[in-house]
Structure formats: structure tokens, C-alpha cells
């Protein structure tokens, strides 16, 4: 088996162009998948030595997050919107967060991925590069289904951009799972909020684990926009949450419980983002 650790994006892209490659970032998802399948990859392209792939930087368009930035770094960051660091903190255990990367979480495209709903709520933009060139894709259109994305086999996620607009305002994330520590989301939700004099100027919300892909909560957003954000409004908005999601029953939770959790979690994140006393 071949294991390459390119130092530059160009070198990585050129190796990918020759085919037979598996892109390796932190490896926390890949290791589990490979163990289960028992298959040995032909070639690992470990992208974590490409220096521009790690860390965060403020640029003209907004905040750039390198795909190999670890989940632990995101969790500890005060520069990114709060919902994203909260989402990162919710992932796995310290051991997982130290190894796992944000690019891996996104490209793995698990419906319960805990940075996915924040990315969607923040309208993050993903830059994808392949031997054929580069393109930018909006977070909401990037995910096609469980473990399915618009990425081609030889295509790399090279940059994650949070637009300047979303660096203002406030945001929050919450998830719930079957146990308290190290657990997969039964439901998670992220909300980003811009309040002007107590009135919702703009709001974006997204849910995870309630559909094959993370979902924007458009009806809820529409209801909330322009309203004064008090306990009553928050309570009323929960009726719209139900319409925005389409959960199923599976091993982790029933459909009914997911509806209930979505409401309860949304109630909590909205209050949190609005700076209202919460639970």
C-alpha cells in the first residue's frame, strides 16, 4: 500500500489525478469504515501536511477555515461563530476531537455530523479543487444524502469560508444523544441570529439528524423574521419547526421523539442565541 503525505495542494491534486486514492484527513471516520469493510486502500493521500489546510484566517470574503483544522481547535476557538465551536465541542471525546478534522466531518457527510448544521445555518461556502479546476459550493447544496456529497472522487475540499455577515450577530448549537458523554446526535440544531432592538432582523437555522442531509429551517426562519423575540414568539415558532424537519425512526431514536427533541432543542438554542435566560 502507498501512503503519501504531500506538502502542497498541487502535489496532492496531481497524485489524486492519477487515481486509486483515498483522501485521508484525521482518519477517525476512515479507520472505522476500513475496519468494518476489511478492505485495504490502494493509496492514502494524507492531506494534513499541506500547511494552508490547517488553521483559521480572516480574509476579505470572511473567515477561512482550513479543512485539516482539528475539531479540538474549532471547539477552542473564540473567532468562529459560537454555534460552530459548540458543534465541534459536541463531537465524540477529546481523543476524537484531537484527531478529527472539520473537513473530514463535512466530507464524511453523516446526517448526524455535528458541524453540519452550523455550517448550513451560517451559509458556509466550500471550495473544492480537482485536477479539472476549482469551484465553490454552498453548504446547503453540498450534501446529497447520508455519506453522499457533490465531491468527485478526485476532488478535495480545500477551504471553508464563513461570510463576513455571519461573523456578526449571535449563534448557538445544541445536540442530544443517548448518553451524556461521547455520543452521536439524536437531533442537533444550530441557529444564527441578528437582533436589532429586540427584533429579529435576520435568522438562519438548521437541523441535523432529522433528514438524510442537514436541513435549513426556512418556515421557522420566515415566521421569526421581523418579530420581537420573547418567550411567546419562541414558543410559537416551535410549531414551524415541525414543518421544517422530516425525521425517521431508527436505532438511535423514534420519529416521534425526534420531533419532540427538535422542538426542545430549538427552544433552547434560540434562547441561548438571543441571550435569554435558558434552562
Amino acid at each position: 500500500m502507498e501512503y503519501v503525505q504531500p506538502d502542497t495542494l498541487e502535489a496532492a491534486v496531481s497524485r489524486l489525478g492519477r487515481g486509486g486514492c483515498t483522501i485521508l484527513s484525521g482518519g477517525t471516520d476512515l479507520a472505522v469504515v476500513n475496519r468494518a469493510s476489511g478492505l485495504k486502500p490502494e493509496c492514502f493521500v494524507d492531506i494534513c501536511r499541506i500547511s494552508q489546510f490547517s488553521g483559521m484566517e480572516l480574509g476579505e470574503e470572511g473567515l477561512h477555515i482550513g479543512p485539516c483544522t482539528t475539531i479540538a481547535e474549532l471547539a477552542a476557538s473564540a473567532e468562529i461563530p459560537h454555534c460552530l465551536s459548540q458543534g465541534a465541542s459536541a463531537i465524540g471525546s477529546p481523543q476524537i476531537r484531537n484527531a478529527a478534522t472539520v473537513g473530514g466531518n463535512i466530507c464524511n457527510a453523516s446526517p448526524c455530523g455535528d458541524t453540519l448544521s452550523p455550517m448550513v445555518a451560517l451559509s458556509a461556502s466550500f471550495v473544492l479543487v480537482s485536477p479539472r479546476g476549482s469551484r465553490a459550493v454552498d453548504a446547503e447544496t453540498f450534501f446529497l444524502g447520508p455519506k453522499k456529497t457533490v465531491l468527485a472522487d478526485d476532488e478535495l475540499l480545500t477551504d471553508i469560508i464563513i461570510g463576513r455577515e455571519f461573523l456578526k450577530g449571535t449563534s448557538a448549537f445544541k445536540m442530544l444523544g443517548k448518553r451524556k458523554g461521547q455520543v452521536i446526535s439524536q437531533v442537533n440544531a444550530a441557529v444564527w441570529l441578528l437582533l436589532e432592538d429586540g427584533v429579529v432582523a435576520k435568522v438562519q437555522a438548521a437541523f441535523g439528524s432529522v433528514a438524510p442531509v442537514p436541513l435549513r429551517a426556512r418556515q421557522t426562519e420566515a415566521f421569526l423574521t421581523g418579530k420581537e423575540l420573547d418567550a411567546g414568539t419562541i414558543h410559537e415558532s416551535l410549531a414551524y419547526v415541525k414543518q421544517d424537519i422530516r425525521p425517521i425512526s431508527d436505532i438511535r431514536a423514534s420519529e416521534a421523539y425526534r420531533y419532540r427533541l427538535a422542538e426542545s432543542i430549538f427552544h433552547d438554542v434560540l434562547k441561548q442565541a438571543a441571550g435569554l435566560a435558558c434552562c
Binding site: 443517548k178 448518553r179 451524556k180 458523554g181 461521547q182 455520543v183 452521536i184 436505532i251 438511535r252
Partner: peptide
């Protein structure tokens, strides 16, 4: 059996 791993079998962690 649908949950033969610690990911899906709700084994209590230190926080539980």
C-alpha cells in the same frame, strides 16, 4: 442485533 457497538449501545460514560 442492531446495536453491537459502543457507538449505539448506550454504555454509560463518566458524564453519566
Amino acid at each position: 442485533i442492531q446495536n453491537p457497538t459502543f457507538a449505539d449501545y448506550a454504555f454509560p460514560s463518566i458524564r453519566d
